[in-house]
Amino acid sequence: MRIRGIIAAAVATAALAGLGITGATTAQAATPQVSGHQCTAGGGFISGTPQNGFFCVGGKYAGQPID
């Protein structure tokens, strides 16, 4: 019984460590940006404000920031 508890703790620790590594990699990934021309050519339109940034709405590049 004691060995089963040790193995369960080791598996849980390994799983949590794996999640930490995956989360760090995802957080460092750059958000893709498109130009205003790419947004409109892809069927979308530009929306947003200078304070909050501009984003493509609809079309092929929906949700991506405009550079």
Rank of each mutant, 00 (worst) to 15 (best):
Gln28Ser: 14
Thr31Pro: 03
Gly5Ala: 11
Ala41Asn: 11
Gly48Asp: 04
Ser35His: 06
Thr31Ser: 08
Ala41Ile: 10
Asn52Gly: 09
Phe45Gln: 02
Gly44Ile: 00
Ala8Met: 00
Thr40Asp: 03
Lys60Val: 04
Cys39Val: 09
Ala29Tyr: 07
Lys60Cys: 03
Ile6Ala: 08
Gly58His: 10
Ala14Glu: 03
Ala24Met: 14
Pro65Met: 12
Ala30Arg: 01
Val11Trp: 04
Ala15Gly: 08
Leu16Ile: 09
Gly42Met: 11
Phe55Cys: 02
Thr49Pro: 07
Phe45Asp: 07
Gly5Lys: 08
Ala30Asp: 08
Ile66Trp: 13
Ile6Ser: 11
Gln64Leu: 07
Ile3Glu: 01
Leu16Asp: 00
Ala12Asp: 11
Arg4Thr: 05
Ala27Trp: 03
Ala27Val: 12
Thr13Tyr: 00
Met1Ile: 08
Thr13Asp: 00
Ile66Arg: 07
Pro32Tyr: 00
Thr40Asn: 02
Ile7Tyr: 10
Ile21Trp: 06
Thr25Arg: 12
Phe45Thr: 13
Ser35Leu: 05
Asn52Tyr: 01
Ala24Glu: 14
Gly48Arg: 05
Gly58Phe: 03
Gly63Arg: 11
Ser47Tyr: 13
Arg2Lys: 07
Gln28Arg: 15
Ala10Pro: 12
Ala62Pro: 01
Gln38Asn: 09
Ala41Asp: 14
Gly43Asp: 00
Gln64Pro: 02
Thr26Ser: 13
Gly58Trp: 04
Leu19Ala: 05
Gln51Met: 14
Leu19Asp: 08
Gly63Glu: 12
Val57Phe: 08
Ser47Gln: 15
Ala27Asn: 12
Cys56Gln: 02
Ala10Gly: 05
Arg2Gln: 09
Arg4His: 07
Ala9Phe: 13
Ala17Leu: 13
Ala10Phe: 00
Gly43Val: 06
Gln33Met: 14
Ser47Leu: 07
Thr22Glu: 07
Ala8Asn: 11
Gly20His: 02
Ala8Thr: 08
Ala29Met: 15
Thr49Leu: 00
Tyr61Cys: 13
Thr22Phe: 13
Phe55Tyr: 14
Leu16Thr: 06
Val57Asp: 01
Phe54Thr: 07
Leu19Glu: 03
Ile66Asp: 13
Gln38Tyr: 08
Cys39Pro: 15
Ala9Lys: 10
Thr25Pro: 02
Ser47Asn: 10
Gln51Gly: 12
Ala29Gln: 15
Thr40His: 04
Thr25Ile: 12
Thr22Met: 10
Pro50Asn: 00
Ile3Tyr: 06
Met1Gly: 04
Gly53Phe: 04
Val34Arg: 08
Ala15Phe: 14
Ala17Glu: 06
Asp67Asn: 06
Met1Trp: 02
Thr40Ala: 09
Ile3Leu: 11
Met1Gln: 10
Gly23Val: 11
Thr40Cys: 08
Ala17Gln: 11
Gln28Leu: 12
Ala8Gln: 03
Gly20Cys: 11
Phe55Glu: 04
Ala14Lys: 03
Gly63Tyr: 14
Gly58Lys: 03
Lys60Tyr: 06
Ile46Thr: 01
Gly36Thr: 09
Val34Gln: 04
Asp67Tyr: 10
Gln38Gly: 00
Phe54Trp: 10
Ile7Gly: 02
Arg4Leu: 13
Thr31His: 06
Gln51His: 12
Ile7Trp: 02
Ala17Phe: 15
Ala10Leu: 05
Gly42Cys: 02
Pro32Gly: 03
Ile66Gln: 11
Pro65His: 04
Gln28Glu: 10
Thr22Ala: 14
His37Pro: 04
Thr25Gln: 12
